[in-house]
Design a protein around this nucleic acid. Structure first.
Length: 564
DNA sequence: GTTAGGG
DNA sequence: CCCTAAC
């Protein structure tokens, strides 16, 4: 997934697994059990602007109880690969009040940039609620990582690969795929990346390092590659079927919307209008044709229409790309970063059902891709992928079909994964649920759970730009979340406010919650309340100041002095 | 095109 | 989340 700036955004487990499985394959087994006994949370605390220390014991990260000394090596490697000194300076602008501590290893690596402000690592319980501080994923056990993962994405994961988990979480928290660092310390939603180039040179490479290096390199390459792809995505690419090539076809408008921000693919019209017309005209003729076309297999008449998936090989490695087609634009994206279809879009499966031919092609294509992989994947990996993608009882055909439309990245787990749905029903669309309307019609309603990282972003956005400036926040803080509209942000904020005020007073309310869809760390709720209060009083004093614009111009930036 | 609110 | 009325 790419946002307007060409930044990368996390994709699904499956997708990652898919790709990483290829890269790591058998190597995976080496570190699959990696678990460190000495799980030290290296989380520094930051004092909130209001002076309130953001300290709270989190709800649930249990101290790691497992102590498999065996795997020490790997985790040790993971940590020590990171030169303590060199850290990116990119985050320095937020440092002002900030970087209080860092997860430093007692490793006297050569310091390249002066990391003057860094302090020692505080060994404490990993506390995920300290969201404003740094979150150090490095020393967490798998179990803890799972917790964090769940908190971050609102779903469970079965992946046991620590590195993977860390990267995944980091990506989630960071909203970036630029998590190639070998150390995972997240601060202020950004990955505090320690220089890893030096790292690899300075560190004696151990057993597991290879795969790690690969992963890192892969990531970086991917980034570079992606940007280049974006740049020349107007040129034709070639289809090359190599060893590691997978070809997939997906419809994605988000991509287009994101990559070519200038072009507003979807119109602000209400969806119900679309759907009404959709329901009434069963023919779909126009659309079907379009969709078939965009699927990208027939020689298109126009230049930009179908773009063959191409795989780019990077230094011997191969990056799998996907052909994303949307509204006539084919855009290739590395599978890993594929994003889910944006909400206002039509559901492709519905279209497909009217054009079996198109579907057939797609299916075979995908199958082909998988077959290719299958040969390289050990059964374990393969099964894992399959398992993640389809329900056990699903037939292979179903799987193929399913994988075509599903691809639901972020919250598959929460949405009960992929349940088998009648291929002919349009209810099959991922996270689009049909709801009966009063008028007797049915309307699709999609639900996408807010992830912790999203909430964090929202809160941050509000703190920076002020509640009410949703479009701003949307543009600046949610650039990568194409599916969250400003209205969504507004609504979520409303809910957060409700939650923060309803819960904190007695604190018992928290427990009374039946099924808190996602437990929002108290620290966040706290912050929400703070912000709410600040903004509330910020608007009241207007009487005296006479000019709202006095503070309006600067918005609520005063809230977080120096904060970015 | 955005925002605030009710549903 | 969806839909609308009001900017």
């Amino acid at each position: 997934m790419v946002d307007g700036n060409g930044r990368l955004v996390p994709a699904t487990d499956d997708e990652l697994m898919e790709v990483e499985g290829l890269l790591e394959n058998e190597k995976r087994e080496t570190h699959i059990v990696a678990d460190t006994g000495q799980a030290l949370g290296c989380i520094s605390n930051e004092v909130s602007p209001s002076g309130m220390p953001q300290l709270e014991s989190s709800e649930g990260l249990s101290q790691s109880e497992n102590t498999e000394a065996d795997t020490e090596k790997l985790s040790a490697y993971l940590e020590e690969t990171v030169p303590s000194g060199a850290k990116s300076s990119s985050d320095d602008h937020v440092t002002q009040s900030g970087r209080v501590g860092e997860c430093l290893k007692p490793l006297d690596g050569p310091l390249e940039g002066g990391s003057s402000t860094s302090t020692g690592c505080i060994s404490s319980k990993p506390d995920f609620s300290k969201l404003k501080g740094e979150i150090c994923l490095d020393n967490l056990s798998i179990k803890e990582l799972h917790e964090v993962f769940k908190a971050t994405f609102g779903r469970d994961t079965t992946v046991k690969d620590k590195l993977w988990l860390k990267r995944r979480i980091a990506m989630g928290l960071t909203n970036s795929c630029d998590v190639s660092a070998t150390s995972f310390v997240i601060k202020d939603n950004k990955l505090v990346k320690k220089d890893n180039e030096d790292g690899f040179n300075n560190v004696n490479l151990g057993a597991g390092k290879e795969h790690l290096a690969v992963a890192v390199e892969y990531n970086e390459d991917l980034l570079n590659n992606l940007s280049s792809q974006i740049d020349d995505h107007q040129t034709t690419s070639e289809v090359r079927l190599g060893n590691n090539v997978v070809e997939n076809n997906f419809a994605s408008e988000d991509l287009a919307a994101d990559q070519r921000a200038a072009k507003r693919v979807r119109k602000p019209t209400k969806r119900y209008i679309e759907e009404l017309s959709e329901a009434e005209s069963k023919e779909y003729s126009g659309r079907s044709i379009a969709s078939t076309k965009s699927i990208g297999f027939r020689p298109l008449s126009s230049k930009a229409h179908a773009r063959p998936a191409r795989n780019v090989s990077l230094e011997g490695r191969t990056v799998i790309t996907r052909l994303d087609s949307l509204g006539g634009f084919g855009i290739q994206v590395p599978c890993v970063y594929r994003i889910r279809r944006s909400r206002p879009r039509k559901n492709v499966t519905a279209l497909l059902k009217f054009h079996p031919s198109g579907m057939g092609m797609t299916a075979t294509f995908i199958k082909k891709g998988f077959d290719v992989h299958g040969s390289q994947m050990d059964n374990g990996s393969m099964n894992k992928v399959l398992e993640a993608k389809s329900t056990p009882e699903q037939a292979p055909e179903q799987f193929v079909a399913e994988s075509k439309k599903e691809t639901t990245p972020t919250d598959m787990g929460q949405n009960m994964g992929l349940k088998y749905v009648d291929p002919s029903g349009d209810t099959s669309d991922d996270n689009v649920v049909t709801v009966p309307t009063a008028k007797g019609g049915i309307r699709r309603k999609h639900h996408r759970a807010w992830t912790l990282s999203e909430v964090m972003k929202l809160v941050e956005g509000v703190s920076k730009y002020g509640a009410g400036r949703w479009s701003e926040i949307k543009r600046l803080a949610f650039a990568s979340y194409s599916y969250r509209t400003s209205v969504d942000l507004k609504d979520k904020w409303r809910n957060l406010l409700k939650a923060s005020f309803a819960q904190t007073p007695t604190d018992k309310g928290a427990n009374s919650r039946k099924h808190p869809s996602m437990l929002i760390p108290a620290s966040i709720l706290l912050r929400v309340r703070e912000l709410a209060e600040m903004q509330a009083q910020a608007s009241l004093p207007n009487l005296s100041t006479g000019k709202l614009s006095a503070c309006g111009g600067g918005s609520v930036n005063e809230t977080r002095p120096g904060y970015l």
